[in-house]
Design a protein around this nucleic acid. Structure first.
Lengths: 343, 343
DNA sequence: CCAACCAATGACACCGCTACCAAAAATTTT
DNA sequence: AAAATTTTTGGTAGCGGTGTCATTGGTTGG
């Protein structure tokens, strides 16, 4: 019904504007604006007329104009180091489900675990005047940290905890988690516990430090049974690294791998080579991905409430935007799921 | 160095503006604008001065103002039915890696496989004046289709193909894929082939129709060995549905499951119950997720180039935005990976 | 019956930037 | 050296909304 609009110049979007709706409804532009933003401040009669005109013309508000006029973009920027990793998918899911019902939109970017790319992305995202930012981890570059602090909008650092957040942090202590799962293995009677890690981002590093501390506490050489790689994690890599480590140290009786992908790869490889898990080798991972409890034997792992963490992170942002009370730091906790791979 | 700005009113963002940069550099605002957008149209001397002023003041352009003035938002909206599904993660990864280097940003939303939510999301996203839209599948509501067509920006429908896209489509024929994998199973000598599907979104439906056509061509009852559910897919569901189907029809010698999650769940269940795969039961999936080749036996499946599909979809959008030649429909193809689960 | 108040509506300026056009400066051509 | 052309810079208006304040009309109470 509203199809034949005049040819849009390079200037105008060619869309229906507030003014046109106003004219159609026989009111002023500002009244239309109010009818849309604060319906209760407009009389029933006018509101009905306006709603009708909006429908008839197919009016779509222009958020750019809104942002400019009211310094509110309704955009939240999210920066993750990976999009294909299930951990971040779940996190994103949680963030989305908190933000969208509250009327916010998500601007998403992938830093590919590169601090340089992260710096650039922050820069670009700020151009959109986001009402808040969710960024992964606590290891931003000094430049970016400064930039973010000067910008004066709510920021959540997600996945990890710190006493000294840019603004707020929501996550867990990866050191504690790495420590706890290693202690758990010692507790079950395993003596020679190996650690395998790939990609070794900051969080994996801290899990490894937790492992090392536990090893030290049990009078073990903290570095002897460690094998790490900067290459990406994958099932294949888990299989390969396990093979490498146990062929070098066949006394190892348990293995903590820095995530479930690696750990599952190790289990699959054991299946192929006829290594009994957990009888000959116990295996533990980190994250509790969906396949972890489905595989044989089911994988012992550290569960973190990813979806919940996403929701919390978003909620912190919203609370802060609305000037409600908020906490600087939210520990969402982890739990050890003891399954067949370490019985 | 640029910290102590005057208190931002509710009106202004309190940020450094172009005008302030201009004053600092001793030039006019428009010249600063040019120096940023078309550096070659400004003399070296001024450009240097301006760059310095930008740095000193920590100037960040305001994209809302840009959008308003030039009817270009540099935003691409992406609507997926799920964020936690690895298929869409990979797609998103591809989209991101094409768009971000070209200076675009991604506004992401999740319709949760709900057409109502999709309608609402389209509505909200349009408020941002996106320069393009990527939306999943070809089954939008009539209302949304109309909306999108009137809006007159490039649109890519991704994942599937159609002769009659809203604007462009990039994907594969799921009917053909379902047909091809079933034919493949017949070709290997299997006679009683079952189909298991969950969630049953439009694409799963079309794969099932491909299966049915193949069954008919081989003089089989197309509906007898079908088991579907509207519930979500998961490893557990694959295990359960397989159990249900083969207990009802123990003559089944091969199974095509509508995705790899279900198929892997079935394989894990066979491992647990001591059912030999493929000797007693052949299993095939769809998608070729990362775990599919790692599990035992490795899963026969239909591979689709998800990352590539995302890149293509984004590229189509970019080509169209830049008025380059483009194709209405891009078939990215699929391939059958014959692995151990159907030997 | 009029002052005091409140709810509903409108006028206007302005958010920060760029399209468009005009003017000035630098360069080339005649 | 003057004219013509090109390059560089600037002035102005306007993109489409909303904050702020003013105005209008109706209601209440003394």
């Amino acid at each position: 019904m509203e199809n034949s609009r005049s040819t849009p110049s390079r200037r105008s979007s060619g869309r229906v504007t507030l003014a046109e709706v106003a004219e159609r409804a026989g009111v002023s532009a500002i009244t239309v604006s109010r009818a849309l933003k604060h319906p209760d401040r407009v009389s029933n009669k006018l509101r009905a007329k306006i709603t009708l005109a909006v429908q008839e013309l197919g009016y779509i508000p222009n958020q750019a104009a809104r942002s400019l006029a009211s310094a509110e973009s309704k955009i939240i920027s999210v920066i993750f180091p990976s999009l294909s990793n299930a951990v971040f998918s779940d996190l994103l899911d949680g963030i989305h489900d908190s933000l969208v019902p509250a009327g916010y939109r998500i601007l998403l970017a992938n830093s590919h675990y590169s601090i340089t790319q992260e710096d650039e992305l922050v820069e670009t995202m700020l151009e959109q005047n986001p009402d808040g930012i969710i960024i992964t981890g606590i290891d931003q570059s000094p430049k970016t940290k400064k930039r973010l602090q000067n910008i004066n909008i709510p920021i959540v650092q997600v996945m990890e905890l710190t006493d000294n957040p840019l603004d707020m942090s929501v996550g867990i202590s990866h050191f504690d988690a790495g420590h706890a799962i290693t202690e758990h293995l010692f507790g079950k009677g395993y003596k020679k516990i190996g650690f395998i890690g790939a990609r070794m981002d900051e969080r994996a590093q801290r899990r490894m430090q937790g492992y090392r501390q536990s090893m030290i506490a049990h009078d073990q050489d903290p570095d002897r049974y460690i094998l790490t790689s900067l290459a990406n994690t994958s099932f294949q890599r888990g299989a390969d690294m396990m093979t490498e480590l146990i062929s070098k140290h066949n006394e190892i009786d348990a293995l903590f791998l820095s995530n479930d992908d690696l750990a599952a790869g190790a289990i699959f490889e054991c299946q192929r080579r006829g290594i009994q898990v957990p009888q000959q080798l116990a295996i533990a991972g980190f994250n509790d991905l969906e396949f972890s409890k489905a595989i044989n034997p089911a994988l012992t792992t550290v569960a973190i409430p990813r979806f919940e963490m996403g929701k919390q992170a978003a909620q912190c942002l919203l609370d802060r935007i609305e000037d409600k009370p908020f906490s600087k730091s939210v520990d969402v906790g982890f739990s050890i799921l003891d399954r067949e791979s370490t019985r």
